[in-house]
Design a protein around this nucleic acid. Sequence first.
DNA 1: ATGTTGTCAGTAAACGTTTACACATATACA
DNA 2: TGTATATGTGTAAACGTTTACTGACAACAT
Lengths: 341, 341
Amino acid sequence: MGKATVHDVARRAGVSIATVSRVVNNKCRVEPGTAARVKRVISEIGYRPDAMARGMRHNRSYAVGYIVSDIANVHFMVAAKALEEMLAANDFSLIVCSTGGDKARERSQLDLLLSKKIDGLIINVSVHNDGLVVELSRQLPVVLLSRKVPSDLFQGDFVGNDGFRGAYELGRHVLSMGHRDIGLIRGPDNISTGTERFNGFVTALREKGIDLPQPRIHFGDYYQESGWNGAGALLDVRRPPSIIVAMNNAMAYGALACLRMRGVAIPGDISFASYGDIPNRELLFITPTCISQNPDQEGSMAGEILLRRMKDRGARPMTVLIPSQLLPGDSIRNLASKSKK
Amino acid sequence: MGKATVHDVARRAGVSIATVSRVVNNKCRVEPGTAARVKRVISEIGYRPDAMARGMRHNRSYAVGYIVSDIANVHFMVAAKALEEMLAANDFSLIVCSTGGDKARERSQLDLLLSKKIDGLIINVSVHNDGLVVELSRQLPVVLLSRKVPSDLFQGDFVGNDGFRGAYELGRHVLSMGHRDIGLIRGPDNISTGTERFNGFVTALREKGIDLPQPRIHFGDYYQESGWNGAGALLDVRRPPSIIVAMNNAMAYGALACLRMRGVAIPGDISFASYGDIPNRELLFITPTCISQNPDQEGSMAGEILLRRMKDRGARPMTVLIPSQLLPGDSIRNLASKSKK
DNA sequence: ATGTTGTCAGTAAACGTTTACACATATACA
DNA sequence: TGTATATGTGTAAACGTTTACTGACAACAT
């Protein structure tokens, strides 16, 4: 039964509870004969130390929290999977929380986790909750996932995708295909990934002396619908761009849906590219050229950093940028061979 | 600080710890004046009851476990999201575990959860671990998700998709489109959903006097590659069927990839249909006709049932079947107008 | 005045561990 | 033989709650 305690074992093995505890955690040396006897009893009655009692003593729970805006988002789920495996291998449990990007819910979820005395936290902070993180990081090890907060507020561990480089690479690739007139659906400018990717992309353009005019830039919120709207807006002008680029996967879906709905041929009428992973992308009506973020690496790395930090609170803060990867598709028309516009 | 205890509050408010506890849980009546004072102190020093200590007293953790084979699977992650929301609204946390279908890992994950004294468990039991569930359900409330175990072993709560009806409906639809020669990629027969869906489908056929010959049936393991192989095998015969039906979403992806790779036109050369949800399916190269399982309903219902069961261990076991839904696509050629085969 | 009730608040024990401390025994050294 | 060191084990106090029990005090009925 699951209700066996250290006392039951002690009684049955004819030793004191202290000895049982020592055998379980093999701390101090205990006489081999005694140890063997205790171990036998333990497996006989199926004793299993109560993690809560143990946790109370040590003020540890052997659980870590994972707070993200949308746990059903492919990116965070894949990361979660890798993370969970990493943690489970170290006997930590993962408590997941989905906040829907809601500040108040984030707060209350967090309160719940804190009361549970989680040993660490991996969080994709929602917009405008930066103060929370600062406060938190004084109480327990925190690893920021994907979204940074301003470094003057917080300097701690961070694991994310190298948005600048990835977007830069994407920009270079788009240019190499001969495109000069680009329509961009970018992410919010209060999310670090939003500005990073934007900066990386336009840097690539600027290096070629190309400037992205305001009307070619549309702000989205990383959700699918804003991709749809952005694409619509970019098309509804006298002279649309030769390519549309969406800066995350959900907006990419939205934009593609819009293009398809309107019967715009890709890449015949207009080209397309996007940032972020699209599962089974070769099965879409057109295989989009995109940037893979390797979310599994992101997850396992976050786990690794957190484990390290929990072992040593004083360790130097780390910032790990997971490299991106260009996955070529056939959604970009090559204008490079013929002369440009 | 997070280190404030009930003693700190008591001292500062000039009352005993018992009174503080009473105020926090507003159990017995306590004089309004005193209560107010205590409450003020609580918010002043930011006291927050330690869930572990509390849990130890009550032998509850206010956490439930969620064990699935693959947490990155769309179906389970959508269910997880709904589940998490339902639980969070009731102040429960969700601990997720991914087992990769490995029996030993399932066992050890479970041990970890049990030592954490979880209050309940929602589990998608892996194949051949039925005994485990039986043993478990004696220790704590358990809700089976998606996969049943034989009812002579276990009679407890179950939430899943109505595989028989869904597949039956799919079969009817396929027939109504005029198809008579059907190739099936079915799931394993040691997984309840595998046999249920199969039975539902062939029942529909049998009602029309159609019998599915052995060579038209291929066994898959619910993973993508087996869908690819199944489709390949069904095509590699002198006279392939007029339609291929895959019995879960991952195998559907595999089969579609195979068909596309071989340049088989859908539904021109061959038709296609499948069981299970395919996100953004209207963006695939062909919009597959499929059965939606409403995994979000599955998740929230599982949460509901578990909450109910945790309140009342003696409640009658429930079996809830989430209804499926046919989502028509354009992957099935209509042979019905012209005469049949 | 005495008992009966009722309200509020405090004391202390319990939950299942870990661990500082103490104790007992054995071995070594003088 | 007496002191020192080492080894193995037991006792009891903590960790932060909840709660059964007890008590103080007032109000009220006799």
